[in-house]
């Protein structure tokens, strides 16, 4: 195995590890990617990582997948990009497949239902808290709040497809250009 292949393989394992040990959504992966690639292995500069992160957040898709993809492109081109995305998605993929296999067979059991009722009540608080934290960062002034409120009313009242909310928000941003 050449030196380059060995390095690629090690980075693949790194992303696999990050994918497997971050619970609670993709945002939890970001500090781990930072620690591994910037601080420990030093394959990426601090500035390059921050740039990748800000682009990753402005593109559609999972932030962790976008970050892995950009970092891969910056380090080693398209091959590395695809490998990193694969490594990020694989742990999630296999754990869900295993869980789904059992869950779809046993979900009707009263005890499983009782467990999920309790867990779901807690999921509500997890999600509301996350919405509060992300929402606080996303809005800067009363214009943001007013537009958000108008879009929310539109979404609830008319039942339009959520992607139109995305397009309307972006379109309004183009009009304002601030």
């Amino acid at each position: 195995m050449s030196e380059r292949h060995r390095r690629t393989f090690l980075l693949f394992l790194t992303f696999l590890k990050i994918g497997a040990f971050t619970w609670g959504g993709g945002y939890a992966m970001i500090p781990l990617i930072w620690r591994e690639l910037v601080e420990k292995q030093k394959v990426l500069s601090e500035d390059a990582f921050l740039e990748a992160l800000s682009i990753a957040q402005s593109l559609p898709g999972a932030v962790a997948v976008n970050t892995a993809s950009l970092v891969g492109l910056m380090i080693g081109g398209v091959t590395m990009q695809l490998l990193f995305i694969l490594a990020t998605a694989l742990p999630s993929f296999f754990s869900i497949v295993v869980l789904a296999f059992f869950f779809l067979r046993f979900r009707e059991l009263p005890l499983i239902q009782a467990f999920f009722r309790g867990a779901l009540a807690v999921v509500v608080s997890l999600i509301v808290l996350a919405v509060w934290q992300i929402g606080k960062k996303a809005t800067e002034d009363w214009i943001d709040l007013a537009v958000a409120f108008a879009l929310l009313v539109l979404l609830l009242r008319t039942g339009i497809h959520p992607l139109y909310v995305v397009l309307l928000g972006g379109g309004f941003g183009v009009l304002l250009r601030r």
Binding site: S58, V131, I134, G135, A138, T139, E140, I143, D144, L145, V147, A148, F149, L151, L152, L155, P162, V165, V166, L168, G169, G170, G171, F172, G173, V174, L175, L176, R177, R178
Partner: peptide
């Protein structure tokens, strides 16, 4: 501008 405008849309979807 488009990217900046996505923020309130994001808040609406989150709510």
């Amino acid at each position: 501008g488009f990217l900046r405008g996505l923020r309130p849309a994001l808040l609406a979807l989150l709510l």
